[in-house]
């Protein structure tokens, strides 16, 4: 399982350990939607242990962010390294998400 899910107060933290790509995007979607269904509203996706993200991975983040927002919550991103941050900048998705430097910052600033 490339995703580790933990609860920190009201925040659901999902660590992506590996790649977020076309082959596993549905797993992330399932995890977030299931948590959303049971009442979670604040999500922090931690990319500290992530290799790379493809366009399908970016797409699932866009789609989940929209669904979470529709329920009054927020899906934020944490710990993008320089390479991953470049992907968000190139696609201008850095304008769509709140991106924090680390999981600690994401938990502190919630």
């Amino acid at each position: 399982m490339p995703f580790i899910v933990e609860q920190s107060g009201a925040i659901t933290v999902i660590s992506v350990t590996g790649h977020l790509i076309v082959a596993n995007r549905q797993e992330l979607k399932h995890v977030v939607l299931e948590r959303l269904r049971t009442g979670d509203r604040e999500f922090l996706v931690d990319f500290a242990e992530t290799g790379y993200i493809d366009s399908s991975g970016l797409g699932v983040l866009v789609s989940l962010s929209k669904k979470v927002r529709e329920q009054g919550g927020e899906l934020r991103l944490a710990a993008l390294n320089e390479d991953l941050r470049t992907l968000f900048q190139l696609t201008k998705l850095d304008t769509l998400f709140t991106i924090v430097d680390s999981r600690e910052e994401g938990l502190r600033d919630s």
Binding site: D54, S55, S56, V62, S63, K66, L90, T91, K92, L93
Partner: peptide, 21 residues
């Protein structure tokens, strides 16, 4: 895929990324 009307779409970034990278 970076225009305001496309930004919220879940797909359409593959060829764009290839060309930019």
């Amino acid at each position: 895929p970076t225009t305001p009307e496309s930004l919220l779409k879940p797909d359409g970034r593959g060829i764009f990324l290839m060309r930019r990278l």
